[in-house]
């Protein structure tokens, strides 16, 4: 049965009405001015797409456009390609959705942390050290001032820390002393494994055991490359969310990235605590000093100088605190106390 379509010769934009008919494997085209035939084997038929007109490419650059229904009349036995078939069936689309969600969730929960762990363990020490020097230089510019502690005090802490017996002969990272009125009492581990102690933390501690306890926690971060893994994961999560959400709103992508990150950091804190307890016990020290120090840090965090500078209501401080470097402090103190109970 002949159907009508539109014919373009590929040489001009002229639109011509044609009738098309398929007989014995040959497509016959008839227009007002001309008629010709093309063997069906030489046609290139574009797969269907939504309700768009079907396109038949003819040899030599010409093509025909015909409506979807007319195409089916013309080629009743035309087998559909796999992808258009999937797109036309809602159950297949639903399956695609489930598979996509499952793969993305698995990549986020297992794949990314695993890849980051493997990569972080393989970074040469020379590169880690160079990275830390750069991070320290940035921090020195914005947050840090030289430490005001007496040299012998710093020496004593370094010696006590380096004198610890580490379980699997892993060396502790370099200890760096700094003063930071903006950050207050804190200690952190850089991606390359260097540990920074701030003067206020040393002054906040009641005894050296408490300082050592905090440093063993940081040594746990360094030992398992937490900061490096965090950095690698953050880059990937950031890139993916920016790619997906970025063209809608940059602000939204930043919020999503931050929220997706907190899960990882909480896990790292718990692991670092476990490492600290093992290390403290191996050196005949108590995990209670870490719990005591955490409590002090939590109390002073509530009126930290950094947060006080920002003009905002109390609830904002709580949110900032919650998302800050050391989340879930109450829970961690409880767990540390529980492990020390005889």
């Amino acid at each position: 049965m002949p159907v009508t379509g539109v014919y373009f010769d590929g040489q001009s934009s002229k639109r011509q009405s044609v009738t098309l008919e398929l007989a014995q494997g040959v497509l016959k085209l008839n227009s007002d001015s001309a008629q010709f035939s093309v063997p069906a084997g030489e046609l290139k038929i574009a797969p269907p797409l939504g309700r768009a007109a079907r396109v038949i490419y003819l040899p030599g650059g010409a093509h025909c456009e015909i409506a979807q229904e007319d195409f089916e009349t013309l080629f009743p036995d035309q087998a559909k390609a796999l992808v258009p078939l999937l797109e036309q069936h809602w159950p297949a689309v639903a399956a695609a959705l489930v598979i996509t969600l499952a793969v993305v969730a698995a990549a986020y929960v297992w794949g990314l942390p695993y890849a980051a762990e493997v990569t972080a363990g393989k970074i040469p020490p020379a590169i880690s050290a160079r990275l830390d020097r750069q991070v320290l230089a940035n921090f020195d510019e914005v947050w840090f001032e030289p430490s005001q502690l007496p040299a012998d005090r710093r020496q004593a802490i370094s010696q006590a820390f380096n004198g610890l017996v580490f379980p699997d002969a892993g060396k502790p990272g370099e200890l760096i002393f700094r003063l930071s009125p903006k950050l207050g009492a804190n200690a952190f581990t850089f991606p390359g494994g260097s540990i920074v102690v701030l003067d206020d933390l040393v002054n906040l501690a009641d005894n050296d055991q408490e300082i050592i306890a905090v440093l063993t926690h940081e040594a746990g971060h360094a030992h398992d490359h937490h900061a490096m893994r965090q950095m690698l994961q953050a880059s990937v999560v950031g890139m993916v969310t920016l790619w997906y959400v970025g063209d809608i709103s940059h602000l939204l992508s930043v919020i999503t990235t931050v929220l997706l990150q907190t899960r990882y950091s909480r896990e790292f804190e718990r692991n670092a605590d476990a490492f600290a307890v093992t290390l403290l016990h191996a050196n005949h020290l108590s995990g209670l000093s870490l719990a005591g120090m955490l409590e002090k840090l939590q109390n002073q965090g509530k009126d930290s100088k950094l947060l006080k500078q920002l003009p905002a209501p109390d609830s904002v401080y709580k949110v900032l605190n919650y998302l800050s470097t050391h989340p879930d402090t109450d829970e961690r103190i409880k767990m540390l106390r529980a492990t020390e109970r005889p």
Partner: peptide
Amino acid sequence: EYFRIWMVNTCLSIV
């Protein structure tokens, strides 16, 4: 229509 194309595209790209 576009949602279905997008979903199949995304799934096949990931797999």
